[in-house]
Design a protein around this nucleic acid. Structure first.
Length: 270
DNA sequence: CGCGACTCCTGCCGGC
DNA sequence: TGCCGGCAGGAGTCGC
């Protein structure tokens, strides 16, 4: 569920309910996430007030008290507000009770997510080596071009490398490469400056569009049913291997790059 | 240093 | 109907 647009959608959804609110109580039902939830987290945030809810890459950064509560949603995580007293279901590992009769509830079936603490003035190691935000000025085709020289890996895992640019997950990497007409298997170091300019533009466009429509897969965020987020119908290739290309009608191909499935059109992408 | 493989975990889907 | 293998939106870590 969470790529950058979904995390940003979550941030926008919860921020107005958190900023200025005090934490009454932290309830950790299961601390076993990707890393254990710090045992002193309650001491850090109880009776403290949220001042700002920010995002960096796919991390949510919640400023409170003497530091920042850092959360990552992993593959299956979800953070949403529920009225106090809402029954607790399986995999709903953490509650942060507010002074507003609302509870910020963290759910994560696979437990690949994280809930960490960063003291004011310090930078958590997870955040220290991140590349630029894809929608910022620092991200552009020239950066892709420069960083890719002498790189032998395929272009798709290259643009999914958080040191190159953050927030480009499997869905949007797949879609951006299709939009730019670039074969995901191509060697990163052998792609021209002009094509990287095109690619950077498409990465920016697809992410911006997904954020505007509230994320591809906000189903979990909204608390919904099951299947497709409504942005899904706008996907040209992701999840459509074996189906027909919406542009040229050819059958879409699939390969694996960096242990991730990659769908592409042999006719539209080279 | 760069790169690919492996790993964490649960749920779900397709095939038999 | 049930069991089993494979795969899933992430990304740190470990060998080579």
């Amino acid at each position: 569920m969470p790529e950058l647009p979904e995390v940003e959608t979550t941030r926008r959804g919860i921020a107005p309910h958190l900023e200025g609110r005090k934490v009454i109580r932290l309830i950790v039902r299961d601390p076993r996430l990707r890393w254990p939830i710090p045992e002193d987290l309650a001491i850090q945030i109880e009776n403290q007030t949220f001042t700002a809810i920010r995002r960096r890459a796919k991390y949510l950064l919640m400023d409170i008290g003497g530091g920042t509560l850092i959360s990552h949603l992993g593959m299956s995580g979800n953070l949403r507000l529920v009225p106090v007293g809402t029954p607790v279901l399986k995999h709903e590992h953490v509650d942060i009770e507010l002074d507003s009769c609302m509870t910020l509830r963290y759910t994560d079936p696979r437990r690949f997510g994280a809930m960490l603490w960063q003291r004011s003035g310090e930078e958590h190691p997870l955040l220290s080596k991140l590349g630029p935000e894809p929608l910022s000025e620092e991200f552009n085709g020239e950066r892709l071009y420069q960083l890719s020289r002498k790189r032998s890996m395929a272009v798709k895992p290259f643009i999914m490398d958080n040191a190159v640019v953050v927030g480009v997950g499997n869905i949007y990497a797949t879609e951006a490469l299709f939009a730019a007409g670039i074969d995901p298997r191509r060697e990163a170091g052998r792609i021209s400056r002009a094509r990287y300019n095109e690619l950077a533009g498409e990465i920016r466009k697809v992410l911006a569009r997904a954020i505007d429509s509230g994320g591809t897969t906000l189903r979990d965020f909204i608390g919904g049913d099951g299947k497709p987020g409504y942005f899904q119908q706008e996907l040209f290739v992701y999840g459509r291997a074996g189906q027909l290309c919406k542009v040229c009608g050819a059958t879409l191909s699939e390969c694996r790059l960096g242990q991730r499935s990659s769908v592409f059109c042999r006719r539209c992408q080279s």
